[in-house]
Write a protein that binds this DNA or RNA. Structure first.
Lengths: 151, 151
DNA sequence: AAGATACATTTGTATATACAATTATTGTAC
DNA sequence: GTACAATAATTGTATATACAAATGTATCTT
């Protein structure tokens, strides 16, 4: 098993606090790289894919920018431009909200739903592969520890 | 304890595979935000700080770009520009290697060492705080599980 | 020695992230 | 009703990330 010290090519052992933070960071980059490699052939970024899934979850109801940001795992100061790019691909539509003209209403299009249907099973499979080295019990422990860490 | 489902404001439970990937991503963003908030007052980014620490680790010996990239936890296609910014701050010097003029030799300056000495204890303290909710045994388990995940 | 290949870094372009400032609209206080 | 504050989104600027292409240098082959 490749220890963090090997990855970072350091000969001095890393204190447990620092090692944990680095290990989380490194694992996150690793998972992101694996998923990105899969999404790349669809010409869509991880973040754009995430927005599409959120919009589908609204089941026809409109989402404004704050709805999307609330559900984004990446803190986005910049959802506007992300939506711009999805509009350019015809995956999403944006209208100004008539009741409150400061707000916008964002919808996923049929084309957006179709591409999601294509990508979803592949990402699911990739996520299964990413976690394949751990048993269900170990995965539950890992989730518990990460949640406790942040609490 | 705030579950991932609460954070993402979804009412449907997330499958364990997907939940694990999301949990790692979210935890990584969380730790990065905490550390960045601390570094911000020093007008230095997480990545620039990381490069400085790597250079200090060379203890006077030169580092070329590949040395730095090998030790970077973030896969950097772009270490050149990161070093440019550190040079602009007088934290780092760059010379072309005389023995092999394709290579560069990068050194940390006294000013760079000084700022590191200032920042280090604060980051150490922050990392201790980040991991404060877990016992030593739990931290060891967490590191083990993450390492096993990637193996 | 000339041409091909490999190596080390830099540069270009597109996207994402972080924070501040701005614009437009709505709500509230007086 | 006007002034002021709050809200929602957009825009601007700087940095970081990802990948491809270009540049300059060294090495290898014959």
């Amino acid at each position: 098993m490749k220890q963090l010290e090997d990855i970072l090519k350091t000969n001095t052992p890393i204190p447990l606090n620092k090692k944990t933070v680095l290990n989380i960071t490194y694992s996150s980059i690793w998972t992101k790289d694996v998923v990105n490699a899969v999404l790349k052939s669809f010409d869509i970024s991880n973040e754009q894919f995430n927005v599409l899934r959120i919009l589908r979850g609204k089941k026809g109801k409109p989402a404004n920018l704050q709805d999307i940001q609330d559900r984004m795992i990446n803190k986005m100061s910049n959802t506007t431009r992300l939506v711009d790019k999805l509009i350019a691909k015809d995956y999403v539509e944006r209208f100004t909200c008539k009741k409150n003209r400061r707000k916008v209403e964002i919808f996923i299009t049929k084309k957006g739903l179709n591409i999601l249907k294509e990508i979803d099973p592949i990402v699911d499979k990739t996520e299964s592969e990413i976690t394949a080295n751990l048993t269900t019990k170990e995965l539950e422990t890992l989730n518990l520890l990460l949640t406790k860490l942040r609490s």
